[in-house]
């Protein structure tokens, strides 16, 4: 990471700490904010946050690794999560999964070479009545079939 990038990230974290406070309960909101902007939380960011909250960096790392939506390693610009739980599975998740893997040329857990998309499975999205479902960043898409899923993915930048 370049020095100026570090500085601006440090400033951003400082702002977030001002907004949410420097107590432990602020940890998740701060992590979520960094995650949603950068799609991951770097080791530098983790140590900055730990410093502000007066906790150990390994505790931040531990919390990040616990939650599926927080990442310590870089991800693509968009994170696509396909629901793998039973109702979506019954509704044809496998076909959708195959189609998008083929289209993007990557498997689940991987990121496209142009870093446009990271593909992940997720557990129940609460869209069981309209599966298969996936979320692209924060937006939810339901009633997927292979064609529709590929179209949605082709439209994200």
């Amino acid at each position: 990471m370049l020095v100026y990038e570090k500085n601006s990230l440090a400033e951003e974290i400082e702002e977030l700490v001002k907004t949410y406070g420097n107590e432990r309960p602020s940890l998740l909101p701060i992590l979520e904010a960094i995650q949603s902007k950068y799609n991951y939380i770097s080791d530098f960011a983790q140590q900055e946050i730990a410093q502000h909250l007066a906790i150990h960096p390994v505790e931040v790392y531990s919390v990040i690794s616990f939650y599926s939506f927080l990442h310590a390693e870089p991800k693509g610009r968009n994170i696509v999560r396909l629901c793998q739980t039973i109702s979506c599975d019954l509704a044809g998740k496998s076909k959708v999964a195959e189609a998008i893997q083929k289209e993007l040329g990557i498997r689940f857990g991987e990121t496209t070479r142009d870093r446009r998309i990271t593909l992940e499975y997720t557990n129940c999205l609460g869209m069981c009545d309209c599966g298969p479902a996936m979320i692209v960043n924060d937006a939810v898409y339901t009633h997927l079939d292979p064609q529709r899923a590929i179209k949605i993915l082709s439209e994200i930048k």
């Binding site: 039973i86 557990n123 129940c124 869209m127």
Partner: peptide, 11 residues
Amino acid sequence: DEGEPGTFKDR
């Protein structure tokens, strides 16, 4: 935190 598979009433 409605996460039980097959539950979406809270949504």
